[in-house]
Amino acid sequence: MKLYTCTSCGNPIYFENSTCLQCSHALGFDDSKFKLVALENNQNAYSEVNNKNELYHYCSNAVMGTCNWLIPVNSASPFCTACELNRIIPELNTADNQAKWKRIEVAKHRLVYSLLRLRLPVKAKQNPDDAEGIAFDFMADVSPEERIMTGHDNGIITLNIEEADEAERAKHKSELGERYRTLLGHFRHEIGHYYWEILIKDSPYLEKYRQLFGDEQKDYGEALQTYYANQTPANWNDAFISPYATAHPWEDWAETWAHYMHMMDTLETAWSFGINIQRPEIKTSISNDPYSESNFTNIINRWYPLAFAVNSLNRSMGHADFYPFVISAPVVQKLQFIHEVCGVGKNK
């Protein structure tokens, strides 16, 4: 994520801000330019304070406090690129559900930002049977017997809204023995399944994928049953990014994809803030935007010292490691493959 400053007064602002706390201008995100801009009223619409020629409306979800993205004044849709992907949102008749939905949207908007920066196709699914398109269903359990399972099916990503409850998420993390579990991590994992279908399935990359991740034609349901019925191999991190990645080649891809997105977004933030590590033992200069870097070796060589430094900062505050994973050489190859498939740093 880039560092943004108010285009009116220069005050540093967060990506989610809808008002500058220094100059009180309204703020909105223009995803076509990746700009967070200060706004002023202009003939029943908004324009940038420094550019009166382009007129915007806020996304319709702005009235709920869940979105600060802009749409052109002549847009056919009342929703922004990110909110247009929603198919089902939670019942908003309770303050608890409203708060959960807002946390979900914060994570989802950051996901969509990264997908757009990767220049991947992002479009709403019009019909459930369409081969392409993304739809999000954010749902609550109907009863203890009818639980909503988070997952992906043909571009439809379902999220149980209890994942927006920190206590429930921590409970699941402990029960499943996971090192890391966040809303944004869920989104990045599940969207990885979608982009496997878009980028790998029936593509020239399929054979190389199978060499690195394994044969996805093995029975998926049986593989998951085996995974949950048995202990993860003790040496899983020799070739996998997480224990769950050992379950099936599809899950290995989705887990690795999520970590690739973690790395790219975090390195962009570090680059935007001008962060460099000057210790001789782990010296690195995060000197350019990772989304313009075609050489993955440069990315991973910047990631190692950054992760070590931030892990150390977290420990100084008494928190768990920021990035509690070891990246083995086979995992680096998988990450590099994803970087290649996404075509980062190259014209598309």
Score class of each variant (00 low, 15 high):
I300P: 01
L306H: 11
R279P: 06
F296A: 04
Y304V: 08
N298Q: 10
A270P: 05
R279K: 14
Y304I: 03
S292I: 06
P290V: 08
N301R: 12
F296Y: 14
P305G: 10
M264W: 09
K283C: 08
A258N: 05
K283T: 08
M263N: 05
N276H: 14
W271R: 00
M263F: 02
I300H: 00
S292Q: 15
A270E: 04
D265C: 07
H259I: 11
T297V: 12
R302E: 15
W303A: 03
L267I: 00
A258K: 06
I286D: 08
I299D: 05
N301M: 11
P290Q: 12
I282V: 11
I275E: 02
A258Q: 02
I300T: 01
F273I: 07
H259G: 00
D265K: 04
S294C: 09
N298K: 14
A258W: 03
N301F: 03
W271Y: 14
D289C: 13
N276T: 12
N301H: 14
S294R: 13
A307G: 11
F273N: 06
T284D: 07
N276A: 15
L267R: 05
T266Q: 02
F273S: 08
Y291K: 05
Q278K: 11
S292M: 10
F296R: 00
N301S: 09
D289M: 12
P305V: 03
W271K: 02
F296E: 02
Y291A: 00
P305M: 05
N298A: 13
N288E: 07
P305Q: 00
T297D: 01
M264A: 09
S292R: 12
I275Y: 15
Y291R: 09
R279Y: 12
P280L: 06
H262M: 13
G274I: 10
E281V: 05
M261A: 09
A270W: 00
A307M: 09
G274M: 11
I277R: 09
E293H: 01
